[in-house]
Design a protein around this nucleic acid. Structure first.
Lengths: 157, 157
DNA sequence: ATAACTGCAAAACATTTGCATACAG
DNA sequence: CTGTATGCAAATGTTTTGCAGTTAT
């Protein structure tokens, strides 16, 4: 579930350095949010993270959770995905680099994959349009063919 | 700006067929929303579409705009993008097929591109995970290098 | 005729903001 | 000490919903 202690420490140090660099405080709340996110193997929304922290006896407000998540995004320690039309999902993004997502439209299952051709596409596009590429987000939607996919569409056949 | 009349008619017919097929009514409001979307060469949010219609003297409510946009999505006549964390953007998706987006993080400019390797990636992934792929969404974020990019970050150099 | 659709305004929901208080540096 | 961060609750902004009245079929 969680990352090995060495990597967790690396992440802490990176966040601390980022904050120091910007003249921002290293508060216990911020590290609590960082830890809660890195304790999550998949994708969480801000409110779930808030509730989880609260439940664990950590006193943080929703405002701080949102604020900290923004800082984590800016420091490349987190990634945000806007899959539904409402809640954003967050995931840890350090020691866990570049991957993309495959989502089942029936059951919502989210799989991760990585394809080197995306790197090539990025380079081609960067060249073609004179862009300096920062990152990309690819999501493939489809239907998983598992028997236990809970929401199979009305099987017409 | 707008599509040639023949294609617009094709789109109308397709929407009419879709609605008929589902036993839903072909109301003037629905076609007004369809036309307003297809009159947009780029990406619009629902509220802008609503205001534009209202301004053109078409009596539609926001609720109908949202409802109709959903129908257009379901009939593959429109595509939705969730780029910011708030407003969704819509674009026409017929006679204008499969393309992806390149967004400048500084000025927000949105470019479109198409790369055949994405098709290959989709196929590989479909194979690998036993998915039947429906569609994909790829967005590349970066910095356009235009001199007139209005929000160049503080050029440190 | 009659079920589906519409407009309107209120509700819902995630996220942001303002301000008095707390605390890291 | 001082300015930055925090918690709380109220505000915001987008999308959804309920309902009485309309309208396509």
């Amino acid at each position: 579930m969680s990352l090995p202690a060495t990597q967790l420490q690396e992440v802490h140090e990176r966040f601390a350095a980022f904050l120091k660099d910007r003249g921002q405080r290293r508060t216990p709340e911020r590290f609590a949010v960082l830890d809660a996110l890195y304790d999550t193997p998949d994708h969480v929304d801000a409110d779930t993270l808030y509730l989880r922290l609260k439940n664990d006896g950590v006193r943080v407000s929703r405002a701080t959770v949102y604020n900290t998540l923004d800082l984590l995004l800016e420091s490349d320690l987190a990634a945000r995905h806007q899959w539904g039309q409402n809640q954003a999902k967050y995931e840890r993004a350090w020691a866990y680099w570049q991957h993309d997502h495959l989502i089942c439209l029936d059951c919502g299952e989210i799989l991760e994959f990585c394809d080197p051709r995306l790197q090539e596409i990025q380079e081609t596009v960067a060249d073609l349009y004179g862009f300096e590429v920062a990152r990309h987000a690819l999501t493939i939607y489809g239907h998983c063919r598992r028997e236990n996919c809970p929401t199979r569409p009305e099987t017409t056949e």
